[in-house]
């Protein structure tokens, strides 16, 4: 049995289900909109290109991508798979709505991915927060941007 560190009030902990294994940390990029793969992102640059998307022109490279999930073309997995080859993939993904697109995409991107959380990550996490994802243990630790500033 593992011994848990005492809770720190500047870190929010979420529990969820492992979709794909691994551990990663980084800065959160949060959107409340689903993302299209093929036709919605540029796999060479790791940016969202969909015309009316709130993240249009924004790069998800090396971010912890927090979003509702996938939409659009069945080329989703191949488009995100390609970001692994071009080294523009996110470091991890947290999402709320399961689809075959995102499940397969997470597998071939080979990054830690989680869903089915005890709290809605879209309510808790904001762009710029520091997020540690331990998919193997089903735990996400969120350090709010405001707290990071204070500790710096």
């Amino acid at each position: 049995m593992s011994v848990e560190a005492p809770p720190r009030n500047d870190v929010i902990v979420l529990h969820g289900r492992k979709v794909t294994p691994g551990v990663a940390e980084g800065e959160a990029l949060v959107t409340h909109q689903t993302i299209s793969g093929w036709g919605g992102i540029n796999s060479m640059t790791g940016t969202v290109i969909e015309t009316r998307h709130e993240l249009r022109g924004v790069s998800f490279k090396d971010k912890i991508l927090v979003y509702p999930g996938a939409k659009g073309s069945s080329g989703w997995s191949a488009a995100f798979h390609t970001t692994r080859l071009t080294k523009t993939a996110p470091r991890a993904m947290l999402f709320t709505v399961m689809t075959t697109k995102i499940a397969l995409g997470a597998v071939v991107m080979r990054i830690p991915t989680m869903t089915d959380f005890d709290r809605d990550p879209l309510q808790v996490i904001e762009t710029g927060d520091w997020v540690k994802v331990d998919a193997d243990h089903g735990v996400v630790e969120v350090t709010k941007k405001s707290h990071q500033e204070r500790h710096r």
């Binding site: 069945s74 997995s77 689809t99 075959t100 397969l104 071939v108």
Partner: peptide, 20 residues
């Protein structure tokens, strides 16, 4: 389901797909 390139290619060889 909306399958992807990798899952369809794997299914062509195995005749299986997740029952989801």
């Amino acid at each position: 389901n909306t399958e992807g390139r990798e899952s369809t290619s794997a299914a062509m060889l195995t005749g299986r797909i997740p029952d989801w």
